[in-house]
């Protein structure tokens, strides 16, 4: 960041837009496309980019997610740096054949002779009354695709640096953006080009009583829970995974070995969610440090509610996180 000292306050939407603008400006191979991307996208993430960079580089595609991802794979194979937008992560499912059959297998299948340096961005998660599939969190499915990286930022500054790193990465990257964070927070974001390393978790708040392991839209929920706990003299450590695949187990284990207690927080359905992998790894690697069972706080194993009247009961909040914390502290 040494070459980019200036900062501006930005929302996550603005930070992603800024990262895309930087990428389009510095590399002519970068192409940005998807449904309604030309006019700025339904969340206005690509606002102004078509006007600045032209219709040849920022453009609308036909309405077909399988086409968007498959087409992007071909673009990448033949020399471009495609950045595709899927309008909502819950609309990705028609493209799963492309994701599972080609996207992450291509390097391995061809011994690294063909590669797919492609980024697929999608808004995910609930919290702003986008009904049912518009609030899905399918990240665990994506981590099951070999050869694919999955990145989920938790604030504007990190979103920009991680997205630029994803676009420059030699492998395909899913970049999921929590809809809840799009406009709810403003933070200082450096101008110009900078990257943050993929595959590294970070300590978002230091503490010694218990570890909260989380990512994306749940980071602010966990930080809020940690603030409440701190008022009662309980210091929680919050680990923000940032990259789910490849998973930085070392950072998580170091924290759990220190605190002896872990709660994993994610908003996808509880069963088979990425938090289940985190809990399993803690059990495999640091079970002897544990002083309490590893608990999960997650979405319920029912579809995300399509009505805002009950939506807030689905998504984990600070109250549910603190209930789990009390249980592990009492054990």
């Amino acid at each position: 960041m040494a070459d980019a000292p200036d900062t501006r306050p930005m929302t996550l939407v603005q930070a992603v837009n800024d990262a895309l603008d930087v990428a389009l400006s510095q590399d002519p191979r970068v192409l940005l496309f998807g449904e309604d991307v030309g006019m700025g996208g339904v969340f206005r993430v690509s606002d102004g980019l078509q006007g600045k960079h032209g219709e040849a580089r920022v453009f609308d595609t036909p309405l077909a997610e399988a086409g968007i991802v498959g087409y992007g794979i071909g673009l990448a194979l033949a020399g471009m740096r495609p950045v595709a937008e899927i309008q909502f992560a819950g609309f990705l499912y028609p493209a799963l054949d492309q994701v599972l059959s080609h996207l992450g297998r291509y390097r391995h299948r061809t011994r690294g002779r063909f590669t797919v340096p492609m980024v697929i961005r999608a808004p995910y998660g609930g919290g702003v009354h986008t009904p049912e599939q518009h609030a899905d969190s399918p990240e665990a499915v994506l981590t099951q695709a070999p050869g694919v990286k999955v990145v989920i930022p938790s604030d504007p500054m990190r979103a920009k640096g991680l997205l630029l790193a994803a676009i420059e990465d030699p492998d395909p990257v899913f970049f999921l953006e929590a809809i809840k964070l799009y406009r709810s927070v403003k933070a200082e974001v450096p101008s110009g080009h900078y990257t943050l390393e993929l595959g590294r978790a970070r300590v978002a708040r230091a503490g010694d009583a218990a570890t909260l392991v989380t990512y994306g839209g749940m980071v602010e929920v966990c930080l809020k829970a940690a603030e409440v706990a701190a008022r009662e003299g309980v210091e929680l450590e919050v680990i923000d995974l940032e990259t789910l695949a490849p998973f930085d187990a070392a950072t998580v284990m170091a924290s759990v070995e220190k605190t002896g207690r872990a709660v994993v927080v994610y908003e996808a359905r509880k069963i088979g969610g990425f938090g289940a992998e985190v809990a399993a790894r803690i059990a495999e690697e640091t079970v002897w440090s544990l002083q309490a069972p590893v608990l999960r706080v997650a979405g319920w194993d029912a579809p995300y509610p399509p009505f805002s009247a009950i939506e807030h009961h689905y998504r984990p909040d600070a109250r549910r996180v603190l209930e789990a914390v009390r249980k592990v502290l009492a054990a």
């Binding site: 498959g70 794979i73 071909g74 673009l75 990448a76 194979l77 080609h102």
Partner: peptide
């Protein structure tokens, strides 16, 4: 790859790249 027709959209993407 075996999944039928999964290579057709990549062909279009490669063509656009060209």
């Amino acid at each position: 790859a075996s999944p039928i027709a999964s290579h057709v959209a990549p062909a279009v993407g490669a063509a656009i790249s060209m």
